[in-house]
Design a protein around this nucleic acid. Structure first.
Lengths: 109, 109
DNA sequence: CCCCGCTATTCAGTGTTACTATCTACTGGT
DNA sequence: ACCAGTAGATAGTAACACTGAATAGCGGGG
């Protein structure tokens, strides 16, 4: 992945993952696979796990261990009330950014 | 500024500054003032100067020293050919992100 | 004259984040 | 016993925006 993409993901990736969790609970491996399908081809697995640990420690998600048929138990994350608040704030910030950038973007040709 | 905004700015602020420079040459103090008018109320001055040094070192901008009526000489930056290429790449990456995020954003109520 | 305010730039140190690379652990099939 | 696939954890690194301070030039007021 380009360095540009990497830097732009900082802060944004967290919002993306929380947005996914707002629609349904999910676990790390599943989220990584979904991101790759969506075109984030080179998201490292470790990145998603580390991100999930961070949001858990900040109390934005609830965690439940669910035994898996294959492999170790899954840690299924779901967005809690505080997480929803945080996600709302994320969308506000995101809208602010997209507004400013759309003004700067040259007319498409 | 919220920590959220700070983190989301990473990588994006650079694109914003380059976009400004693509429309006209400018110097650091001026860019900072403009950003503040646009609602980036708490952009630290040091941040913009550090960013300009980085893009200069990567050869994306040309620099010219221009004496100022008040205060020390200004370093006026302008986007060069390589900078334009880089900026195009930035817009592609930005479009990719906005596409993915617009899919995730809940229908506005 | 000297200090203050404004303009303008620079720099050292800090925290957060995504990356790389590696490691552990559990299951099923050969 | 071994291996592939699933699932998660962790140590170390690089990049970037922030804080806070310092530097420097010019004008005007006391």
């Amino acid at each position: 992945m380009s360095k540009q993409t990497t830097e732009m993901l900082k802060g944004v990736l967290e919002g993306i993952v929380l947005a996914i969790l707002s629609s349904r609970p999910a676990y790390g491996y599943e989220i990584t696979a979904w991101l790759r399908e969506q075109g984030f081809t080179d998201i490292a697995e470790g990145t998603v796990y580390a991100l999930l640990v961070r949001v858990e420690q900040r109390g934005l998600v609830d965690v439940e261990k669910v035994p898996s048929e294959k492999g170790p138990p899954r840690k299924v994350y779901s967005l809690n009330a505080q997480g929803h608040d945080y996600l709302s704030e994320f969308w506000r910030t995101w809208s602010f950014l997209t507004d400013r950038l759309s003004q700067l973007q040259p007319g498409e040709k």
